[in-house]
Design a protein around this nucleic acid. Structure first.
Lengths: 302, 302
DNA sequence: GCAAAAGTGTTAAGAGTACACCCATGC
DNA sequence: GCATGGGTGTACTCTTAACACTTTTGC
């Protein structure tokens, strides 16, 4: 606490800068990805870093994180999910001054997979999504209900070719954790912590649905779990396990526009009223056999 | 991140004070308690608050929390367990200036219960432990191995009668959560968050042992779980469940100095090599039937 | 018809729970 | 002997995990 009997008095305190950094995660084609920006100046110029910025004097930490998310991606915090991760404050993590960063992690809904064979869609090095960092004023205005309806449309309108000095990109987590792509400051550690927390949250809450479009199939939800946990799950058991949990899913009348070259159309579901499961869905050891490799695709023989 | 393309440059950033606050918890006679200090000056003078202080320019957040814990209680962080909880930064949480607090929670081992009938020991409003906040220099020096051996002795040497303006006290959590005792700033919320996290950690880690003396019985460990979770557990099942988990407990040759008015002497155990369980010990609904009231004492008929 | 994907049934193994019961001590 | 608390046995229930099987579509 600020003032106490140990020699400090108000006004004579060590001044710090306080920033927020955001680990925005999404799942694209079975890959967990993280939003990174390429730094345009300063230390680590040209390096990859988490989006973030200073906390302003009048706003609290959650508001600062929500504002930064909106400014950088056009995503409003209430469209997905956002939660504080923790504070990071090594003395020389920023070489210029003493900075304490409060990290947040957030979830962005994904675009629905384009109708085509899954094999074709997954393979040809699926194009990364680029988010413009320009025109923050336009991005900051509140979206209309129609705009909110389809986040996919919002995103598409912001995608550009990239290649500019400072841009943002959804980078596969594997690129970061394998070390092929290294991050500025202590952001690698922040990303690791965020992923750990996300993995744990999937056990007790329904936030995995936040990665999905407003209406989704149980199979799509399963793909989120598999991407985040890095495991394969039994489709039949997963279906029952999710539907059995009360309050987490609302059934819909509609079904998927039916399969490409066959397959039974899947029921569509909406998020339930409860943000948590009535009973946790644990990654038990038997359930989570390690997944081999991205794009080895499947365990089943053909 | 500090410098970016959005109008900020280094040196022109909103200055904040950064502090650490510590939720030090212990279990005394089946009660989960929290260390509070009574404020000697400033806002909330005379009110109860968490111990804490400013982060110094040269130290990181963990070091600041460890230093504060040592200064305020004489407990070295490596004697128990300490973990960051999160950051709290509402704009006017401190009326004097903009302060962001990074909260930590920590565990202190408890004194072994004095040999007497459990009923007698539990009832007569067991005396609270008082920690002196004076002579910080003495408290700050590194304790010798002999001193470390018995934390109980360290504590006793610091206990004083209390009644002074600024002192510290282990307050039962129930006093805080019932609202009978209200805390300064947003410290009530921080305490609640710390307890939630502690409860969750008991499921997957062996830190409950941190509340126990170096050698302890399974029954003592069970009492920790019951105090923290606020439940009753079946003694027979708990015994097996804990002993079954590999790596969490090391057997000892010794036994308890044998019962007071009978009873089979209990085996003594030490902490195992693993800080986490091989399989989590969940508070499943059946296991955690709600406990009635503190000091109604027991469910069994007599 | 066949292939593919959604959804259901069945079963064996194991974890969780309740509770009876035996064991080792003090008095 | 009796009381007390430590530790073990046992039976029943429920969840998990594997996998066979049925349903509904496209071609």
């Amino acid at each position: 606490m600020p003032d106490r009997q140990d020699g400090y008095n108000p006004g004579k305190y060590p001044p710090f800068a306080v920033t927020v950094d955001i680990v925005l995660m999404t799942v694209v084609d079975g890959d967990l990805r993280v939003l990174l920006i390429q730094r345009g100046e300063g230390p680590f110029e040209g390096g990859w870093a988490l989006p973030g910025g200073f906390v302003l004097p009048h706003e609290n930490l959650d508001e600062a994180a929500g504002r930064e998310l909106l400014e950088e991606t056009g995503i409003r915090p209430d469209q997905g999910y956002m939660e504080q991760l923790g504070a990071y404050g090594e003395p020389y993590r920023d070489p210029r001054m003493r900075v304490v960063t409060v990290a947040y992690w957030a979830i962005a809904p994904r675009l629905r997979k384009a109708p085509s064979t899954p094999a074709a869609a997954a393979r040809p090095e699926a194009k990364l999504l680029f988010f413009s960092r320009e025109a923050p004023a336009a991005a900051a205005r509140a979206p209309s209900p129609a705009e909110m309806e389809s986040t996919a449309q919002q995103w598409k309108s912001k995608i550009r070719a990239g290649g500019d000095a400072a841009y943002a990109e959804m980078v596969p987590l594997a690129e970061i954790q394998s070390g092929r792509l290294s991050l500025a400051f202590d952001h690698r550690r922040i990303v690791d912590d965020a992923v750990d927390t996300l993995r744990a949250r999937l056990e007790t809450t329904t936030i995995a649905q936040g990665f999905c479009p407003p209406e989704f199939t149980i199979r799509e939800l399963q793909e989120i779990y598999e991407a985040v946990w890095g495991t394969r799950l039994d489709a039949g058991n997963f279906y029952r396990d999710m539907v059995r949990r009360k309050g987490s899913l609302t059934p819909t009348e509609s079904r998927t526009p039916s399969g490409e070259q066959g397959g039974r159309p899947a029921k569509l579901w909406r998020a339930g009223e409860s943000p948590t499961f009535d009973r946790p869905y644990y990654r038990s050891p038997g359930r989570t056999r390690r997944r081999r490799r991205r794009d080895e695709d499947d365990d089943r023989p053909r």
